[in-house]
């Protein structure tokens, strides 16, 4: 993250700042350690290991540092049980939060869903569009309260491509592509769907055997067999 840390702060030396004057030795050691980890923060167990301080000393010092508003507790997406601390001036890194799409360590599915729907709607309206066009169109519609970067829109569209709701195509400069330079990557809704349509199901996926969890135990004369199969019975129950 674009911050340039002041290297002098890393040294375990009495800090010139006034606040540190009031810290005890243990607190200072701990504070410097936490601060040296910058936006990664540090786990309490690691603190104990690296400082060789006693458990109760660490706990007490952390409490005091928190009270003095020098450090803060952050959630680690990888492991919520692990308490991480970080100096107040840093923002948690992407590794800790999970990135822009995470809120309090949880994937913001609601927000993503809204944004996906919006993108899909705008692509459908535009027929074919580049990322910039989609992004611009959404911005102009003013529906999104939150400002979305083009980068974010591009991530959403990439997910839509993986969902097979949107197709990546290259401009041919004819027809719908008329306004887009030749060869530019554009997106358009998959032909199989309008908004809210469902995709075509494959031959195998449309029969019970295609999704059968017991297919490996199924034999012509076994306990599970096509003759006695409950999924078949349900399927052929008219």
């Amino acid at each position: 993250m674009g911050r340039t840390p002041d290297t002098s702060l890393k040294r375990k030396r009495p800090d010139p700042k006034s606040t540190s004057q009031t810290l005890s030795d243990a607190e200072r050691v701990l504070y410097n350690l936490i601060r040296s980890k910058e936006d990664m923060g540090i786990w309490t167990r690691d603190m104990k290991r690296e400082t060789n301080l006693q458990d109760n000393v660490v706990t007490k010092s952390l409490k005091s540092l928190l009270a003095k508003n020098l450090i803060k507790e952050v959630v680690n997406i990888q492991n919520k049980g692990k308490k991480h601390y970080m100096a107040v001036e840093f923002e948690p890194s992407k590794e800790l939060t999970g990135g822009a799409w995470y809120v309090d360590g949880n994937l913001d599915t609601e927000f993503i869903k809204i944004l996906k729907d919006q993108c899909l709607k705008h692509i459908y309206k535009l027929k074919v569009a580049t990322i910039e066009m989609i992004s611009e169109s959404i911005r102009r519609s003013g529906l999104c309260k939150v400002e979305c970067t083009t980068q974010q829109i591009s991530e959403i569209v990439r997910a839509l491509v993986l969902d097979n709701d949107v197709m990546e195509v290259r401009s041919t400069e004819t027809g719908d592509f008329a306004s887009i330079p030749l060869g530019t990557v554009c997106y358009r809704c998959s032909s199989k769907i309008g908004p809210g349509g469902t995709s075509k199901v494959g031959a195998m996926a449309s029969i019970p055997c295609g999704v059968c969890p017991r297919i490996n135990e199924c034999t012509p004369d076994g306990i599970i067999s096509p003759r006695t199969c409950v999924y078949f019975n349900k399927w052929l129950d008219f």
Partner: peptide, 21 residues
């Protein structure tokens, strides 16, 4: 397409996206 549609049916949409990726 055929393969992905099996994945979608058996493992759900998230798995489908992962598999396609």
């Amino acid at each position: 397409d055929e393969m992905e549609s099996i994945v979608l049916k058996r493992y759900g949409r998230d798995a489908y996206r992962i598999f396609r990726l």
